[in-house]
Design a protein around this nucleic acid. Structure first.
Lengths: 236, 236
DNA sequence: TCCACTAAATGAATGCCATTCATTTATAGC
DNA sequence: GCTATAAATGAATGGCATTCATTTAGTGGA
C-alpha cells in the first residue's frame, strides 16, 4: 500500500509520453509506478463532475475520463457506482455544521445543524435514497456527526430512548425538504384544473402574494420550528 | 379514441392464433382491431411488476412482456418511462386517506392522512424523487388530494398564507419517513466503530431495549405529533 | 536474491436498458 | 371511398455498469 498522494487532479502528462499530440492514449497496460487513483481523488473527481454536469453526468465512464484512466481501473478501488455515491455522501456530511452543539442553546444548535444539513444535500438529492438506508458503519464521517448530535441531545436533557427517534424525525424532515428546494417554482400551478380546485388554488395564490424569494424556506422554517418545539418539550 | 377497455390483464390468446404452441410471437404487425393497451392497463401492469419484482424489475421491456406487446408499443401511450412512474404515483395517491377532513377534529384528520400517505409510499420510495418535483397539473388525483387537504386546513383556521407551507412541511416529513421505513434494521449498528462513538451507541441501545416492532414508527409518531402541534398553534 | 503473490492499470467484451424509426395494418372522419 | 391518424411490430442505436483476460510493477517471505 503506497503512501503516494494521487488526488491532485488532472495535471496534463507533460514529461513522459511524447506520442500522439492529440492527447490520445497515454498509459500503457500494467501497473504504473506511482498509483494514479485513490479514494480521495475519486471522490473529488466525482464532486467536480456533479458540479459541472449534474448527477446525469456522473457515469463511471465520465469519472474515468476525468481521472484519465480506463473505466475498469475504478473497480480496483470501489466495488460499484454505489460506492462512489457513498464516498460523495460521506464527504458532504463533513460540510454539515454541528459546531452549535459545543456550546450555546440546544435550539440554536439544532437550527444551525438542520439548515446546513438541508443546504448540503439540496444540490445532491440523488444521494438521499443512498443516505436514508445506508448503514452508518459505511460512512465514518456520518457516524461522527451522529455522535456529536446525539451527545448534544443528551446534554440538553432529551431522554436517552428518545434521542435516536428525535434525530431520525428531524433527518426525515430534512431529506424531504431537500427535495423541496429543487422543485420547480410553478410546481403548484394547477393550470387548467384551477377551476375544480378553488381551495388549493387560493392557498397557493395567498402564499405567492407574500413574494418570498424561496418558498421552500418558508415551509422548512415552519416545520423545523415545530419539530424543535415538540422535541424540546421532551426534555426532563 | 376507442372506448374499448383493454386493461384486464394477461388473458392468454385462446381463439385466434393457433400457431407456435410454445407461446412465441402472437400478433402480426399493424394496428390490431381492438386496442391492446391503455393507460389503466399499463398502470396496473406496472403495479403488478413492482409488486413481484420491485422497481428494479420495472423496465420497459418487462412491462411490455407483461402486457404481451413489443416494447415500442408502449411509446404510443406514454412518452417515457417517467410517464409510467407518474401513472403509478397518481394511482397510489388515491390510496391516501383524506376522509378525516370531512368531519371530526383537524388533528385526527391530519394523523389519518399522514400515516396512510407514508404507508402508501413506503413500498414505493423510488417514486419520491418523482412526486417531490412533479407539477401538480400532471397528476389529477394528486391535485384532488391537495384540494381536500387545503380545504381542511382552512376550515380548521390555518391562516391562508400558511396552508401551503404547512402541507409542504408535512409532506417533506412524510417523504423522508417513507425512506426510513425501508431502512435495514441494523442501520445504526456502529460495528467496530462503536468504541469511538459512545454517546450515539448508547442512544441506539436505549431505543433497542424498548423492543419496538417498528422503530421507524416511533420516530414518525414523534415527529408527526410535533408538527401537528406546531401547525395547529397557527390557528386563529 | 529470487520468487510467488498481490495491486493496479489497459482494453475488449457483455448484457441490459430506454428510446427511435421505418413499416404495416386498421380505424375514423371527411 | 380517401386520407389522415392511431397502434401495433421488429430492428436498430447508443449509453450504461460491470467483468474478464492480460500486462506490468511492487512487496513480503524463503
Amino acid at each position: 500500500m503506497p503512501a503516494v498522494r494521487a488526488s491532485a487532479g488532472k495535471e496534463k502528462a507533460t514529461t513522459d509520453d511524447g506520442g500522439t499530440p492529440g492527447g490520445a492514449k497515454r498509459r500503457r497496460a500494467g501497473r504504473p509506478s506511482a498509483a494514479v487513483l485513490d479514494l480521495a481523488g475519486i471522490t473529488q473527481a466525482a464532486l467536480d463532475l456533479i458540479g459541472n454536469k449534474g448527477y446525469d453526468g456522473l457515469t463511471m465512464a465520465a469519472l474515468a475520463r476525468t481521472l484519465d484512466v480506463a473505466p475498469s481501473a475504478l473497480y480496483n478501488h470501489v466495488e460499484s457506482k454505489h460506492d462512489v455515491l457513498v464516498l460523495v455522501e460521506d464527504h458532504l456530511m463533513s460540510l454539515v455544521d454541528v459546531s452549535g452543539f459545543e456550546s450555546g442553546p440546544w435550539e440554536d444548535a439544532v437550527r444551525t445543524w438542520a439548515w446546513s444539513y438541508r443546504d448540503a444535500f439540496a444540490a445532491h438529492t440523488p444521494l438521499i435514497p443512498v443516505i436514508a438506508v445506508l448503514p452508518v458503519t459505511d460512512a465514518p464521517r456520518t457516524l461522527l456527526m451522529y455522535e456529536v448530535v446525539s451527545t448534544g441531545f443528551r446534554d440538553a436533557g432529551i431522554p436517552e430512548a428518545r434521542i435516536v427517534p428525535a434525530i431520525v424525525a428531524l433527518e426525515s424532515f430534512i431529506f424531504g425538504s431537500a427535495y423541496d428546494v429543487t422543485a420547480p417554482a410553478d410546481i403548484f400551478d394547477s393550470g387548467n384544473m384551477a377551476g375544480s380546485t378553488p381551495g388549493f388554488t387560493a392557498a397557493v395564490r395567498s402564499l405567492a402574494e407574500e413574494q418570498h424569494e424561496r418558498p421552500a424556506d418558508v415551509a422548512f422554517s415552519l416545520g423545523l420550528e415545530a419539530l424543535i418545539a415538540g422535541i424540546g418539550a421532551l426534555r426532563g
